[in-house]
Amino acid sequence: MPDAPLTPEELTARTGLATEAAFNAATNLDLRVEETRVLHDVFSLVLHLHPSPVVVRIPLVLAPGTTPEDLALRQRRELDVTDWLWREGVPVVRPSPLVPLEPVREDDFSMTFWELVDVADDHQAYAQADHAVCAALHAALAAYPGVLPFLAPFNEGLPAMMEALEGSPHLTDDDLDRAHAEWRALRPVLASASAFHERFPQPDVQPIQGDTPSNNVIRSTRGLVFSDFEDVCLGPVEWDLAGHGPEAVAAYDAAAGPLDMRTIDPELQQVMDTARSLQMVASFSLVPQLPILKQGLQAPLEAWRASPSLVL
């Protein structure tokens, strides 16, 4: 049976322990910290280490079975990619130059440190930018020289999340049957770049942001800044547009041509839409760690139930 959801008191205690760990880690790194100011507290705790121009991000909600080594590897990928993008002149949140370019483990928490962004007055968390910005980001990411795993959000976290769905009080038996049928259909196709190319030989793959880049932007006083590359990976660009519909695809295609980027493959986009929807359904396995997630997942769940089943 799934674990019982954390109580409000337990959530507050978790935030307190993570804050204390961040303060201790920052102090050990010789950062000046007089006050920790919470900027965000959902999947990760994000703190401004005032008065230092440094923000620390501490993942709190993780896929079942995630080990400290798994998390550190994921964080190193993010730090490396964003540092490279910043040096290439791409507007991203920069890893803090005041600390080493490595995740830091303190107590039971692994954290990364970032340069404080001067946020504009019109910034709102998760407020969507025009999907044309995704094409510009993909054009820059295409030249990234490092090694990345294939579709990490699908292949690294989702298997354990799917397994943890069994017994979920939030899904019906029909939901579970369909979810597992789609998983069985998608997994052989998306398990690796080679398997993907056997089914889709024409669309290329490249480094992608991995988690809807048009939503993960900060409106700063110097313009849009990309953030949150925790799921950066190798994959088709369609994954970064999954679930956003034909208007998003049209905006992306209009921007892609002048950048010498390929346009969206309609059939592949449907597959990525299904894979992303399945990821949303599997996220019910995370509700015990973040009870408020149940409410946020209701609309994606109903949209998935109303959509046609995947045919590959």
Rank of each mutant, 00 (worst) to 15 (best):
M1N: 12
P2E: 11
L6R: 11
T7V: 08
T7K: 12
P8L: 05
P8R: 07
P8F: 10
E9L: 10
E10A: 13
E10L: 13
R14N: 13
F23V: 15
F23K: 11
A25W: 11
D30F: 15
D30W: 14
L31R: 08
T36Y: 00
R37H: 05
R37K: 13
L39S: 11
H40G: 15
D41H: 15
D41S: 15
D41I: 11
L49A: 11
H50C: 04
P51R: 03
P53E: 13
V54W: 06
V56K: 04
L60Y: 09
A63L: 06
E69G: 10
D70G: 06
L73H: 15
R74I: 14
R74F: 03
R74W: 09
R77G: 10
T82V: 07
W84G: 03
R87A: 02
G89R: 01
G89W: 02
V93A: 05
P95G: 04
L98Q: 06
P100N: 08
P100W: 10
P100K: 10
E102Q: 12
E102M: 12
P103N: 08
P103L: 06
P103Q: 10
V104R: 13
E106N: 13
F109P: 03
F109K: 05
F113L: 04
F113Y: 08
E115F: 00
L116S: 00
D118M: 04
A120P: 00
D121M: 00
D121G: 00
Q128S: 09
A129K: 06
H131V: 02
A132F: 01
F150P: 06
F150I: 07
G157Y: 05
G157R: 09
A160L: 03
A160D: 05
L165A: 00
E166I: 01
G167N: 15
G167A: 08
S168Q: 01
P169D: 02
L171H: 02
L171I: 03
T172P: 03
D177H: 14
A181R: 12
A181Q: 09
A181N: 01
A185D: 05
L186C: 09
P188W: 00
V189A: 14
L190M: 12
A193P: 04
A193R: 10
S194L: 14
F196C: 06
R199M: 11
F200Q: 09
P207A: 02
P207S: 05
P207I: 05
Q209C: 01
G210C: 03
S214D: 15
S214E: 14
R219P: 05
T221E: 10
R222H: 02
R222C: 00
L224R: 09
V225L: 06
S227W: 12
F229A: 02
C233F: 06
W239L: 10
G243R: 04
G243W: 06
P246L: 07
E247S: 08
E247P: 00
A248G: 00
A248N: 02
A250K: 09
A251Q: 12
A254P: 02
A255I: 06
A256I: 06
G257Y: 01
M261L: 13
R262I: 09
R262M: 08
T263R: 05
P266N: 11
Q269Y: 12
V271C: 08
V271L: 10
R276H: 13
M280C: 08
S283Q: 09
F284P: 02
P291K: 06
P291N: 09
L293T: 02
G296K: 06
Q298W: 13
A299T: 15
L301M: 07
A303I: 10
W304D: 07
R305C: 04
L310H: 03
V311N: 14
L312C: 12
